[in-house]
Lab assay of single mutants.
Amino acid sequence: MQIFVKTLTGKTITLEVEPSDTIENVKAKIQDKEGIPPDQQRLIFAGKQLEDGRTLSDYNIQKDSTLHLVLR
């Protein structure tokens, strides 16, 4: 499925993911596309910070959802 990741600069990254993918996995995909190390990434969805060990389906993230990427 496709999800979107919006950065603070207003750029939107499109990712191909599975509901069973972990947040860690998603961060690795963002690193592949953007070169941002996962340890600098914070992903936010519906006002919640997403934890590495959980999956997209744990957070009820569905296709065409938009996550927000904050760098630390």
Rank of each mutant, 00 (worst) to 15 (best):
Asp58Gly: 13
His68Ser: 11
Gly10Ile: 05
Thr66Leu: 02
Ile44Asn: 07
Gln49Pro: 12
Thr66Glu: 06
Thr7Met: 11
Leu67Lys: 01
Phe4Asn: 05
Lys6Tyr: 13
Phe45Asp: 02
Lys11Phe: 14
Val26Phe: 02
Gln31Asp: 03
Asp52Trp: 09
Glu16Asn: 13
Leu8Ala: 07
Lys11His: 03
His68Phe: 08
Ile13Arg: 02
Asp21Val: 05
Thr22Lys: 06
Ser57Gly: 10
Val70Pro: 01
Asp58Gln: 05
Leu71Lys: 10
Ser57Phe: 06
Ile36Asn: 06
Arg72Glu: 05
Thr55His: 07
Glu34Arg: 03
Gln41Lys: 02
Val70Asn: 11
Lys33Met: 14
Val70Thr: 12
Lys27Pro: 00
Glu34Gly: 11
Lys29Gln: 04
Gln2Pro: 06
Val70Ala: 09
Glu18Asn: 15
Thr55Ala: 15
Gly53Thr: 10
Arg42Ile: 14
Leu69Ala: 08
Leu8Trp: 12
Glu34Met: 05
Arg42Lys: 04
Lys6Glu: 07
Gln2Arg: 10
Gln62Leu: 13
Asn25Phe: 09
Arg42Tyr: 15
Leu50Val: 06
Gly53Leu: 11
Ile13Asp: 02
Asp58Lys: 09
Gln40Glu: 12
Pro38Glu: 09
Ala46Leu: 11
Ile13Met: 04
Phe4Leu: 04
Asp39Val: 12
Ser20Gln: 12
Ala46Pro: 01
Leu43Ile: 14
Gln62Ala: 05
Glu51Ile: 11
Glu34Ile: 08
Glu24Leu: 03
Pro19His: 08
Ile44Thr: 13
Arg72Leu: 09
Gln62Ile: 10
Thr12Ala: 05
Glu34Leu: 15
Arg72Val: 10
Asp64Thr: 14
Ala28Asn: 11
Ala46Asn: 15
Thr12Met: 15
Ile61Leu: 04
Leu50Trp: 01
Lys48Glu: 04
Lys33Ser: 03
Val5Gly: 01
Thr9His: 13
Phe45Met: 15
Phe4Pro: 02
Asp58Ala: 12
Val70Lys: 05
Glu16Gln: 12
Lys11Met: 10
Lys6Thr: 15
Ile23Glu: 01
Thr7Asn: 08
Gln40Ser: 12
Asp39Tyr: 11
Val5Tyr: 02
Ser65Lys: 02
Arg54His: 11
Ile13Lys: 02
Pro19Arg: 15
Lys27Ser: 02
Thr14Met: 08
Gln41Arg: 02
Leu15Val: 03
Asn25Ser: 09
Pro38Ala: 12
Tyr59His: 09
Gln49Ser: 15
Leu15Glu: 01
Gly47Ala: 11
Leu50Asp: 00
Phe45Pro: 00
Glu24Ile: 03
Gly47Glu: 07
Arg54Leu: 03
Arg54Asp: 13
Lys48Asn: 03
Val17Met: 10
Gln41Pro: 02
Leu50Ile: 14
Phe45Leu: 06
Glu51Asp: 15
Pro19Ser: 13
Asn60Lys: 03
Asp64Trp: 06
Ile44Glu: 03
Gly10Leu: 06
Lys48Ser: 07
Val26Ser: 01
Gly47Ser: 04
Ile36Glu: 06
Gln2Trp: 12
Ile44Phe: 07
Thr9Ala: 04
Phe45Thr: 02
Ile36Lys: 07
Lys63Gln: 08
Gln41Val: 03
Ile30Gly: 01
